[in-house]
Simulated assay, not measured.
Amino acid sequence: MTEVDENPTPRRKTISNPYIHRLQRRHFLLFDVLPIIGTVAAFAFLAVRPFGVVEFALLFAMWLVTGLGVTVGYHRLFTHRTFKAAPWVAALLAILGSMAGQGGVVSWVALHRRHHEFSDREGDPHSPNLSGGGFTGAVRGLAHSHFLWMRRHEYPNIVHYAPDLIKDRKLVRVARLYYYWVALGLLIPTVIGGLVTMSWTGAVSGLLWGGFVRIFLLEHIVWAINSFLHMFGTRPYESRENSHNGGVFALVTLGESWHNNHHAFPDSPSFGLDWYRLDPGYWLIRTLAATGLAWDLKVPTTARMAAKRVA
């Protein structure tokens, strides 16, 4: 008879080894540093081709669809399961989120779930509040949480943090093609820019503005939520961490800047919570629900919100 170990080794929550760290450095250079270089190149290329309607349209459209892929797909659907969606909608959101260059969907979800588990405490991958006190500590914390933490960090064990996602074969197939989706997100504005202008300068300009500048802008918008909004803003609801709302940034963040609201009610697909608080991510979810492509929206009740509201 096989003996059963009465004290099995607990599953490791994080993984840290040289191979993982090499992958992190490569991703940091390709998708965090390279967009900075690409943005500088875009401004230098203005000497060859001025910024015009085509460049603005590609920048705005690619920012919007990939940003919605992150906030509605990566964040509200896959991380927090705030609603359910038709399989093809879920796959499309995962692909659009992947084009943002912020990591594969399974890894992103695992990191964000760990952030919520340890938010602003030891174990949080990107808290700005764990680097000491005073002005120096605040600056060091902001630099870490906004950008530098991605160079090297403990990798959340996806078996622990995302078991539901790794059981979804379609989603895993999307995640495995992450680098191809990022490349597609660069190719689309390049091709459109070239075809619309019928010139090589239009293609290069499309790549720079609809590709690299778009990635750069979206990344820093998302990172600012993890950095600045864990130090500054309003706190209408009780929450155990230092999250804040930044309502003035609601549109540019597609609703993500209602960060205190989100941490207080992480199971809510609405981050604004009230109709008058701008939340484009929730507008998309409501549109999907109206067409039968999304359902089971878990919006908190008025009584639940009132119970958590800071007096």
Rank of each mutant, 00 (worst) to 15 (best):
L92C: 12
H80Q: 03
R76C: 08
F78H: 02
A91L: 15
T66L: 13
Y74V: 12
A91C: 13
L68W: 08
R76V: 04
A91P: 06
T82E: 01
A86T: 13
G69S: 10
V54C: 07
A86G: 07
F83N: 02
G69F: 02
A86W: 14
L59N: 03
A85C: 04
F78P: 03
L92Y: 13
A91D: 13
V54T: 14
M62R: 03
L77W: 12
M62I: 14
H75Q: 05
A57K: 03
I95P: 00
K84M: 11
L77K: 03
Y74T: 02
A91N: 14
R76N: 03
G73Q: 01
L92Q: 05
G52K: 13
A91E: 14
H80I: 06
K84D: 08
P87D: 15
H80L: 00
L92E: 03
Y74E: 07
V70N: 02
V72T: 10
L64F: 15
F78R: 01
E55T: 09
G67H: 14
W88Y: 15
L92T: 15
A91M: 12
T66F: 15
I95W: 00
A86V: 10
G69W: 10
L96A: 03
L58C: 09
G52S: 09
L59Q: 04
R81F: 06
L77N: 07
T71W: 09
H80W: 05
T82N: 02
R76W: 01
G67M: 11
F56S: 13
V54A: 11
L93P: 05
E55W: 02
T82R: 02
T79K: 09
P87F: 04
Y74N: 10
V72R: 00
V53E: 15
F56H: 11
L77Q: 04
A57I: 12
A57T: 15
K84R: 15
G69N: 11
I95Q: 02
L68A: 03
F56Q: 09
A90P: 01
W63Q: 06
R76H: 06
V54E: 09
T71D: 02
H75Y: 02
M62C: 12
F56E: 05
V89Q: 00
V65G: 05
K84S: 08
V53W: 11
A91R: 14
V72Y: 05
G97R: 06
I95K: 01
G73R: 12
L93Q: 08
H80E: 01
V70F: 06
L77M: 09
L93I: 07
F83W: 06
A61M: 11
M62F: 14
L96V: 07
L96S: 04
V53A: 15
A57S: 14
P87T: 12
T66A: 09
H80Y: 00
G69C: 11
G97Q: 08
M62N: 14
F78V: 04
G73E: 05
V65F: 15
L68N: 04
I95C: 04
F83E: 05
L96H: 01
L59A: 00
W88P: 15
L96G: 06
I95G: 06
H75F: 02
L58T: 06
V89G: 07
T71Y: 03
T66C: 13
F83S: 10
R81C: 00
K84E: 08
T79A: 04
